[in-house]
Amino acid sequence: MKWSYMDHWRSPSPNGPIDQWQTYDSMDRFLKQVAAVGYDAIDTFDHRYFTIIDQYGSVANYQEFVQERGLERIVNTFHAAAYDQRNYAPHIASTHDNILEDFRVTMDRWSGIQLDNIIVMPATLYYDMEPVTEDKIKTTAELWNKVGAITLDAGVKLTCHHEFFCGIQSKEELDTFYAYTDPALVNLFVDTAQHCIASVDPVEFYEKYADRVTGFHFKDTRHQDLVGDYRRRPDAELMGTTTPRWFHEMGDEGGLVDFEAFMRAVVRNGYDGWLSVEHDKANKLGGDHAESTAIARWYAKNVLEKVAREEAAK
């Protein structure tokens, strides 16, 4: 069972909170902390490419920097696109050529290392897509089938991560999307908190599509969105009225995700890939990324791995 840590990080500096990409020193400290508590690898965002080229010369060089600090490799990259209905919107067919070209360029940029997955949010923000219709989802699916072919050519799986505020987030929308996408080309990346917020049970959802799942973000939430925050303009993650902080680390006392049940399902389905931990915006309300990362790894080691062994022994 191997754990990877997804990129999100803030630490204090004399200039205020910074992320790990500010300097070599901040990256060095980040990677050492992740390694020290027992993660085996990291995930990142592919828009980090430009910083990587500036600071490390190449993606392969950066991965070496990672490896020198005791981590195995970079497992996944998240393609955080800036969706724009004029030129970059999966449900608008006229923008597809632009998107396909973006993925050809991206895969070329990252060809220096072997990634497992490139992760995407497969739809625009909900309010940019609504009314969400079957036709729009079908158009969206057609795009990702084509993108999946491009990434697979590069040896990388395309996998979809559904934010609670994106245009494909309800159970019905998800079912429609996966019905129209090719299982050989379009995979699923289950973010436990995001689905929970969207009132989709992550365990049931995972069980249903287990054979298409190529990864996870293990993170928790204390809230479901029951007031339509998923449609909030301009931003749902930071400006929702439900809470100023949606995401918490695993093991959180008020957390809604049943991680033990989730882990049992992961084992039952024979999943043998990487497990990613994410702490998106963990510094809100006085939180601390470093501590959250340690606590989550503690929970993985002392609770989930034990559950996994029990389940495997059945």
Binding site: P12, K32, Q33, A35, A36, G70, A290, E291, A294
Partner: peptide
């Protein structure tokens, strides 16, 4: 240290490696 958790993790890394 302004970040006691971070310093603990970095100390652990230093001892290990």
């Amino acid at each position: 240290s302004p970040e006691p958790a971070t310093s603990a993790m970095l100390n652990a890394w230093y001892l290990t490696h």
